[in-house]
């Protein structure tokens, strides 16, 4: 009996994954009846399907209300709400992009351009610093959780790890950068696009502990900072923002420290890469990158073009 119950639960879990396909049999049945019988019967079948949908939705609502259902990953991720500073940061980045466009088509004088650009960049930097500092506590907590998880991970047999990984992937918890542990991370993480929400709490900053392990990052897609749709779909990754929500995401044991450091550097870099989508601005920085000789702002930590860390000598 218990086995049957388990099998039923497993079947429901499987069927639930395909719940969005449930209207298809109703529609097919309606079409068949419409052809074979009459339009009224087809409409009746559709009405029956709608009634079932009503019952299912209201039942799910009551279950959620009474606390019988667990939070899904998406719901948990959405707990982190973008702060006003994050929204303002996005607005400033959009304004920067528009400014570059207007300069490129000659609608704004050089003087106004320089003045406005400096103002927007200063505002963006202060917002980024504010965001960084506001998430220090969350970052530390995430690091602690990660360390604890890593500690547990190393004691587990390899096969079980792979089984766990497969299980997590099948449940939709594909960890960004989920590669085999022995491989170096060269693959861009497609799942990042789903979890890149400006509101997500930050994951541990491994860059502080693993400075020497940074390898060249993947060439990132050309960031379109301040893009209208970019900001709208909230996929912009500010340099200061760390990536993973700590509350609901699964343990990130698979992600190497090197990858995380590269990702952090790449994220900082994107904020500064306004020039990639616009004509090159007048060089107004005083720091030259040792790797690519690009000019950078005097207070820049990483090069805005190649992402390399700027040493003090290159100032």
């Amino acid at each position: 009996m218990a086995d049957f119950g388990d099998k039923l639960d497993a079947w429901f879990t499987k069927a639930y994954a395909y719940r969005w396909a449930s209207p298809i049999p109703v529609i097919v049945a309606a079409v068949i009846l419409g052809v074979v019988a009459d339009v009224g019967s087809a409409v009746l079948v559709l009405a029956g399907g709608a009634l079932l949908l009503v019952i299912a939705m209201l039942w799910a609502s009551v279950q959620a209300l009474t606390g019988d259902t667990e939070l899904s990953l998406e719901d948990a991720i959405s707990l982190a709400v973008p702060t006003a500073a994050e929204e303002q940061k996005r607005a400033v980045l959009r304004a920067l992009k528009d400014l570059e466009y207007e300069r490129s088509v000659g609608k704004i004088s050089d003087e106004d351009y320089t003045q406005l650009k400096a103002r927007y960049r200063a505002e963006a930097k202060s917002l980024l610093k504010e965001l960084d500092s506001s998430q220090t506590e969350s970052r530390a907590r995430a690091e602690a959780l990660l360390a604890e998880a890593l500690g547990k991970q190393t004691t587990k047999p390899k096969k079980k790890k792979k089984r766990d990984k497969k299980k997590r992937e099948s449940e939709g918890w594909t960890a960004p950068g989920a590669e085999p542990e022995t491989e170096s991370d060269t693959k861009p993480n497609a799942e990042d696009t789903e979890v890149r929400h400006a509101a997500k709490p930050q994951r541990p900053d491994r860059a502080k502990r693993q400075k020497g392990e940074q390898t060249a990052s993947e060439p990132e897609p050309e960031p379109d900072l301040g893009s209208e749709t970019n900001a709208e779909d909230t996929k912009v990754k500010p340099a200061a923002q760390r990536q993973r929500p700590d509350a609901a995401k699964p343990l990130r044991g698979e992600q190497t420290a090197a990858k995380s450091q590269r990702d952090d550097a790449a994220k900082r870099q994107r904020v500064e890469q306004t020039a990639q989508t616009a004509p090159d601005s007048e060089p107004d920085s005083r720091t030259t990158c040792a790797e690519c000789d690009s000019p950078n702002d005097s207070d820049a930590v990483f090069c805005k073009r190649c992402g390399a860390k700027l040493s003090e000598e290159s100032s």
Binding site: M57, L58, V62, T69, D75
Partner: peptide, 12 residues
């Protein structure tokens, strides 16, 4: 968040 989830389902 659970109330929000319930509200969404009820809206559907």
């Amino acid at each position: 968040p659970k109330l929000l989830k319930s509200a969404r389902q009820a809206a559907y």
